[in-house]
């Protein structure tokens, strides 16, 4: 299974940095996400995660360090988290860390709402900007 690496950029639209590693089971989503075609960008990530959780089945550490995402992206994040939830229910070992600016109340609420939606335990890790 191949790893995914996408270098984030900020020129046209905001592309997040993606690092999905199938050997270590470490996945990172970082930066800002506002894309021309959200589905086109996130679909391969969703497929990767499905393959990892159904075939590789190693412990998974999923880290989100997004400082901004639009609502269109928020739907794709929900899709990713739902796959992780299914994996956890199937006995997969899962750790989710979500880093956010301690001043960003909206982001804090968003993470709480994701926990409500998915039933996942998300480690909320505030940082100083």
């Amino acid at each position: 299974m191949e790893n995914i690496h996408i270098e984030g950029s900020h020129t046209n639209f905001f592309i997040p940095t993606v690092d999905f590693n199938s050997e270590t089971g470490y996945c990172l989503l970082e930066g800002e996400s506002f894309l021309e075609d959200t589905i086109e960008f996130y679909d391969p990530l969703i497929q990767w995660l499905e393959e990892f959780t159904t075939e590789v089945k190693n412990p998974l550490t999923f880290e989100i360090k997004l400082t901004y995402f639009n609502t269109s992206t928020s739907r794709s994040i929900l899709d990713l988290l739902n796959i992780i939830k299914d994996y956890e229910e199937d006995g997969g070992e899962v750790l989710i860390n979500w880093y956010y600016d301690e001043d960003d109340i909206d982001m804090e609420e968003d993470i709480e709402d994701y926990m409500l939606d998915t039933g996942l335990e998300i480690e909320m890790i505030p940082f100083e900007d």
């Binding site: 739907r75 409500l116 939606d117």
Partner: peptide, 17 residues
Amino acid sequence: KRELRKLPQGERGTGNI
């Protein structure tokens, strides 16, 4: 917002959310 987000793609109504 959570209800809208749970709707399948396409039915979501991008404008609404």
